[in-house]
């Protein structure tokens, strides 16, 4: 291992953990969802970093180039991005309904309203 060779992964990990932290430490539901997005988007950076080759070009066949970056992580992440936006949409729909029913999108307020019943 060496520092110069791994900084990309480490920054990705830092970003992931920032997202993860937002998810578990914040009580606001929209903020949680933003954190979740941050978390998964940073995982995408990790995947794409794994596929990069120094001096290579985008994986589209062309006579001028010999070396291409690995296209497989790209394909996987395309799928994962779609999964991410799908989760966001469902989460937002739930949040909207929660706001209509509880009048709040803060976890604490919601808990208090449930317990007061």
């Amino acid at each position: 291992m060496n520092l110069a060779g791994h900084y990309n992964y480490w920054v990705a990990i830092f970003l992931m953990m920032t997202g993860f932290y937002v998810v578990i430490s914040r009580g606001n539901l929209i903020k949680k969802l933003i954190g979740l997005n941050l978390f998964s988007t940073s995982v995408f950076i990790l995947y794409i970093s794994l596929g990069k080759i120094h001096g290579a070009t985008a994986p589209i066949a062309d006579d001028r180039f010999q070396l291409y970056s690995n296209p497989v992580p790209h394909v996987l992440i395309l799928t994962a991005i779609v999964v991410g936006v799908a989760t966001t949409a469902v989460g937002l729909a739930l949040i909207t309904r929660i706001y209509e029913q509880y009048g709040s999108i803060e976890e604490d307020d919601i808990r208090i309203k449930d317990e007061s019943l």
């Binding site: 794409i48 596929g51 990069k52 985008a58 970056s69 790209h74 395309l78 991005i81």
Partner: peptide
Amino acid sequence: VTMDAVDV
């Protein structure tokens, strides 16, 4: 883009 993943 810098990592060659243009589609992504």
